[in-house]
Amino acid sequence: MKKFLSLFGLISASALLLSSCEETPPYINLTPSNSFVDTTYITNNVPAAQAPNVLIEEFTGVRCPNCPAAQTEAKNIAANNPGRINIMTIHPLGLLNSLTTPFSVDIGDKHTSKYDFRTLAGKEIFSMVGVTSQLPRGDVNRRLFSAESERAIDYPKWANYVAQELAKNTPVNIDLKSYITANDSIAVEVTLTYTEAVSDSNYLTLAVLEDGMEDVQEKNEGGTTIYVEDYEHEHVLRAVITDYYGDLLKAELVRGRVFKKLYLYKRDEKWVKQNLSILALVNSNTTKKDVIHSMSVKIK
């Protein structure tokens, strides 16, 4: 017994020491900001509040046969609420690899993907929202609804929660403009105007999305998995211009508070200019992650 206990103690202490060797740190943005103009002031000329738009953040993978159904559901919700729904399709890098890894004949697949849609930004956003064990999953305004245990939920539930979110007000207006500069950078001009005071801290997140990419996708067709070689991938997250979790709005969020910001981000030459759009979110990033408003524009 004594020998066993000595051995047990020794193994436990050694395991404690050894386990100190490696850990994966949380996401910290160590790259310089892409913000080039950043001013804030208070206006007496407070505009009328915009109707809030709702974000559907859909986590997906090219090897996920049920994911096309979730994408169809998101598109249907958007079609039923024109101009009020923003969809962001996220292929997380390094998570749920059996569902997200691109196809390649080199690893025994019958197809080879043209694109790798996975991004580190997508992984970090998925981690922040809460990684689930399966796909497809998606959140509505990154909100943890009282009847749910996770933010990222099954797609049949989205429509109900979207309706709830559409009925709310937003305290902030988003005005957004984006274009390609002469040196092939994406310029984003964003103005945030608070029509009501907010006591929580708020963050601005800007994401680059791309539509119209045809590539292979697994799909569940009546219980059988098929490979759709020309599946059109839309709203795909390509990059986050701000910090992945958003840039803090560093001023008291009183009524009439205005933030004017200009971001510049070098376009990846693989991204097709006319298929790109910018999505802007105003969100929390504490224990609450809620998105309180979103807006998207095509890049001109």
């Binding site: 100190s20 949380p26 996401y27 910290i28 160590l30 900001s33 910090d243 979790y245 560093k250 990033n285």
Partner: peptide, 24 residues
């Protein structure tokens, strides 16, 4: 850690660092 990391992400770039989950 989410609160810690989001706080660090709001520091000026030169003050950011990678925090640790484990301390011994």
């Amino acid at each position: 850690m989410d609160v810690i990391s989001s706080t660090i992400n709001n520091y000026d770039l030169e003050n950011r660092f990678l925090p640790k989950y484990n301390v011994f």
